[in-house]
Design a protein around this nucleic acid. Structure first.
Length: 458
RNA sequence: GGCUGAGUGGCAGAGUGGUCAUGCAGAGGACUGCAAAUCCUUGUACGUCGGUUCGAUUCCGGCCUCAGCCUCCA
């Protein structure tokens, strides 16, 4: 069974064949560290986390690289606002990002290259481009890439150079030979971070770092390059141009783009004040609820964040965990039929909504089977957990999910004990009153033949 | 203006040329002291107009609407 992945470059789903058999080399564009991570970053991180987990789960070795842009205009501006140097600002937001990453339960990338730590590689690549006449020194001293010299320019985003409205929106392009050209090396002004180069003190342009770092970490030709949909043009288009102009070979075989996240039906943007940081979202919802929500729509589609949807995600997750409840020890066998179906839909461009649907079918199957044949229900339960785990879901015990750590277990158990006695004496008024008392504490209960179970209400 | 995608039942969201997505919410039933959980049943869903077809939500074309990109953005 091969994995089919939608490749932005060809506009089609294609059978995935790694350059090196058994090994997947994946490069994902990470964030520019001038502010806290927002939910859009979280979606992209979570999607590639799912991709990496799944690829490893089916047996690939994966080298997962996600870069950090730690020098750029916005960081410099932020640093000036705070009267700090830009490295201090970058480091602080990198720490915060790592904190968010852990809180979300993400796998760490195998390599997390930083632009400022790859200046020699960046300079070397620019030199190659100059030698091959793909780059030139503009009248203001910056080094620019000559877009029109790269005949394949536009192949990723399917754009025709002459149809871009570039003159309308790109300002101050008089220094360039063509308004489309972009900066590879930017000379620094006083009080800006700088590195020495053959063209004077300056810093790298935004796009070149990814070309230089990906080839440094993964080689000049690797398997998958990913990022948010908004990076497709111009960033990824520029990366392809630089890399392929410099190396004369295919850069990344497969390009994956994650749909953008909207909030309450609107584009998320700082100017609209509907900007949600990951940190804030994690105050309201557990990482697993966020993960479930993000995986409940296909990764290439736009996704709308709203509190109602997150509540729905919680309820759905509850259903899954409820089915897992009575199984302390899990069988070491799995139900092959479900595994095959699960892989089949996941292999179709990571169709997580369809994969989740299979998990719900499994949950229902468990519920139906457990009163009839406990052992086979146990096998289904272990299958459910095994499959969900491949997506980073259902990693908690049901008790942990339903009860958490911070509730006052002693008080709850005392009330349950009192209620038990009342029920034994058929004192239904008292029993119902105690149930009401628990409800007002946010605790739901469930009387079963084996005693009363409790869980947190949403 | 150009390029991408979308328009599915109350909400969310897959998918398919002709029997079921799935989840959340709702209704009825079984179970329960009552609940809860669970199971069963249930809702004439596929933007619009044409075309192809024995048959289209699914293929083709026009139209309408929406979103994203063409400037920094995951």
């Amino acid at each position: 069974m091969s994995i089919n992945i939608y490749n932005t470059l060809t506009g089609k789903k294609e059978a995935f064949i790694p350059v090196t058999p058994g090994l997947v080399k994946l490069y994902v564009c990470g964030i520019t560290v001038y502010d806290l991570c927002h939910l859009g970053h979280a979606r992209s991180m979570l999607v590639f986390d799912m991709v990496v987990r799944y690829l490893r789960w089916v047996g690939y070795r994966v080298t997962y690289v996600r870069n950090i842009t730690d020098v750029d205009d916005k960081i410099i501006r932020r640093a000036n606002e705070l009267s700090q140097d830009s490295l201090t600002v970058a480091n602080r937001f990198i720490d915060l990002m790592h904190h968010d990453e852990r809180a979300l339960g993400l796998l760490s990338p195998d390599i997390e290259p930083r632009a400022t730590q790859h200046i020699p590689q960046i300079i070397a690549m620019i030199e190659r481009l100059i030698v091959k006449k793909y780059a030139y020194i503009a009248t203001n001293g910056d080094v620019c890439f000559s877009v029109r010299r790269f005949s394949d320019y536009g192949k990723l985003s399917r754009r025709n150079i002459d149809e871009l409205r570039v003159g309308e929106r790109v300002l101050n392009h008089e220094e360039k030979q063509d308004p489309l050209d972009f900066v590879l090396w930017k000379l620094s002004k006083p009080n800006e971070p700088m590195w020495s180069s053959p063209w004077g003190n300056g810093r790298p342009g935004w796009h070149i770092e990814c070309s230089a770092m990906s080839s440094h970490c993964l080689g000049e030709h690797f398997d998958i390059h990913g990022g948010g949909m908004d990076l497709k043009f111009p960033h990824h288009e520029n990366e392809i141009a630089q890399s392929e102009a410099a190396t004369d070979q295919c850069f990344a075989n497969t390009w994956m783009h994650v749909g953008l996240l909207k909030i309450n039906g609107e584009k998320m943007s700082k100017s609209l004040h509907n900007f949600f940081t990951l940190k804030d979202a994690l105050r309201l919802h557990s990482s697993e609820v966020l993960r479930f929500f993000m995986l409940s729509s296909h990764y290439r589609k736009p996704l709308n964040y709203s509190e109602a949807m997150l509540k729905q995600a919680y309820s759905a997750l509850e259903t899954l965990y409820l089915s897992l409840r009575e199984f302390d020890s899990f069988a070491d066998q799995y139900n092959e039929a479900y595994i095959i179906r699960f892989k089949h839909v996941m292999n179709d461009d990571f169709n997580t909504p369809e994969a989740l649907a299979i998990l719900f079918e499994l949950a229902r199957d468990i519920n139906m089977t457990k009163s009839v044949n406990f052992h086979s229900a146990e096998m289904l339960a272990s299958t459910l957990r095994y499959l969900a785990n491949s997506l980073g879901l259902l990693t908690l015990t049901p008790e942990k999910f339903f009860q958490g750590d911070h509730v006052n277990v002693t008080v709850i158990e005392e009330i349950l004990e009192k209620r038990k006695i009342a029920r034994e004496n058929k004192q239904w008024d008292i029993s119902d009153q105690l149930r009401q008392q628990l409800a007002s504490m946010g605790i739901l209960i469930e009387d079963t033949p084996n005693g009363t179970l409790w869980r947190k209400a949403l």
